[in-house]
Design a protein around this nucleic acid. Structure first.
Length: 477
DNA sequence: GACAACGTAAACAGCC
DNA sequence: AGGCTGTTTACGTTGT
């Protein structure tokens, strides 16, 4: 099914991919820019019209006031301490240009100027200097303060700017209240990823969400329940005990299970891309003169990019967490250890998203259709370790302290191993020529993906795969 | 229609 | 006692 350019709430995403000078060379300009409503019509409507699915929420429910911000300040200190590694060392309190654009009014809902000026730097796949503490999505500020892209743009306290993130002028007041196009798990993921220590107490997660998605400030309190529900149920998130004797020790810290991060990344990717296509065809209301730079949109050349290219590019972007840059409380060894095959696997299987209980199996069942990276999977890169039989909750074979601690149980009906349909080189017998051609294509894809990874300084077992592919090639000769 | 993902609500227990 | 946190169950909606 082809995705609608915009969802029913008028949200869309901006995903920029600029092919480098060498075609597949996407070394730099892969940018993603969150989301924003571009449907002016929708935005100009009254809130109920804008809210879409959430209309159904009972309006009588008590609105939550965003009071978590001051709490957040207090909690920040907690995050980096205790059982968690000191990850904030790289914190570099700096005010991005976003801060300065707080009062800027966007003339157009589709004016992506703010995006260009404020966010792109943070989202580009530039060199290491570009992202001191890169996150799959954001330029995570070390101090987790309101200096990062999103918060500075959308902080309700600072702003009109939030409206710019949410769509700019005019109906911003309404758009502010628009439900973000992210699932709770993704919101949580983003919150956690943006924290200096890559872990947050629930309260901070609330705070982050409130800060960046003001919609929730006026939403019924049920969303908090949903957040907790997600944290508890979603295997992507792990609970990390606070250090003993810590003041404010109520509750635990939550972090993203590195093993499941690819799933979340994948989910994020999926959440962006369908709508991203909207930008292939210019929106109804064309960007103003101060449109974002060429590389912001797919348009032109980018439109001609194969989806696989885009996928690969996205993966590159999302994986823009150079090894060693971040410490992860849950997995100090490798926050996003790109040397681990499972860390780079981003499949296009919708079932692989992230949720609840089937993630590990889902990963195994990566169905690679068009994604270059997925072709890695085909290339035998599905990590053996990911193929855990009956993996429920956190696997017993990994850091048992946490795994046992949570004792997540199987959700009946939630754990159905998706059948894996390998589409690898094995083709119909007797069609030697076609088979070889297919293998050639596969190998080209692998090499292309490898180039991408190489450009990002990522070494994965793809190279091994390449080697083996070449070996196979040689052995065939 | 089945299924999965997701959202929401609610009950409950434990802790502070 | 009340609020917060965490877990669990249930159900509805939506998309595939």
């Amino acid at each position: 099914m082809s995705p609608a350019p915009l969802d029913d709430r008028g949200w869309s995403a901006v995903v920029g991919v600029t092919a480098g000078p060498h075609g597949f060379d996407l070394s730099v300009c892969v940018s993603v820019a969150l989301w924003l409503p571009v449907n002016k019509q929708l935005l100009s409507e009254d809130p109920p019209g804008l809210m879409g699915p959430i209309i159904g929420m009972s309006p009588d429910k008590k609105a939550e006031t965003p009071g978590a911000q001051e709490e957040r300040a207090g909690l920040r200190g907690v995050c980096g301490a205790g059982t968690l590694p000191e990850a904030e060392s790289a914190a570099s309190p700096r005010a991005t240009s976003l801060d300065r654009t707080g009062g800027a009014e966007d003339e157009e809902l589709t004016n992506l100027n703010w995006l260009h000026e404020n966010l792109l730097q943070n989202f580009t796949l530039g060199g290491p200097e570009a992202q001191p503490s890169a996150s799959p999505l954001f330029d995570i500020e070390g101090d987790g303060g309101p200096t990062h892209a999103l918060s500075s743009v959308s902080s309700p306290s600072t702003s009109p700017s939030s409206s710019s993130l949410l769509g700019g002028q005019g109906g911003e007041k309404d758009s502010l209240k628009a439900k973000p196009p992210f699932s709770f798990s993704l919101l949580i993921y983003m919150a956690i990823e943006q924290s200096p220590s890559k872990s947050l107490p629930v309260k901070d997660i609330y705070g982050w969400i409130l800060e960046h998605f003001p919609y929730f400030s006026s939403a019924p309190t049920g969303w908090k329940n949903s957040v907790r529900h997600n944290l508890s149920l979603n295997k992507c998130f792990r609970k990390v005990e606070r250090s003993l004797g810590k003041a404010n020790g109520k509750g635990s810290l939550w972090c993203v299970d590195p093993e499941y991060r690819p799933n979340l990344i994948q989910a994020l990717k999926k959440q962006h891309f369908p709508t991203a296509h909207a930008f292939c065809t210019p929106p109804a209301s064309p960007p103003s003169a101060s449109s974002p730079p060429r590389h912001l949109f797919l348009q032109d050349q980018s439109c001609s990019l194969k989806e696989s290219d885009i996928d690969a590019a996205t993966a590159m972007m999302l994986l823009n967490s150079t090894p060693g840059q971040r410490a992860h409380p849950c997995d100090p060894d490798s926050p996003m250890d790109l040397s681990r095959p499972d860390s780079v696997l981003v499949s296009s299987d919708p079932k692989q998203d992230h949720n609840y209980s089937s993630a590990p199996l889902q990963r195994c069942s990566s169905r690679s259709s068009s994604s270059s990276l997925s072709s890695l999977d085909e290339g035998g890169l599905v990590p053996h370790q990911a193929r855990r039989a009956g993996s429920e909750g956190f696997h017993s074979d990994e850091d048992s302290d946490l795994g046992e601690e949570r004792g997540r149980q199987a959700r009946p009906g939630r754990t159905k191993p998706a059948p894996r349909h390998p589409t690898g080189p094995a083709g119909p017998p007797g069609k030697k020529a076609r088979r070889e051609a297919k293998q050639e294509v596969d190998e080209e894809l692998k090499e292309a993906a490898g180039s991408l990874l190489h450009l990002a300084g990522i070494r994965t077992c793809l190279e091994l795969s390449k080697h083996s592919a070449k070996s196979r090639k040689l052995s065939r000769k």
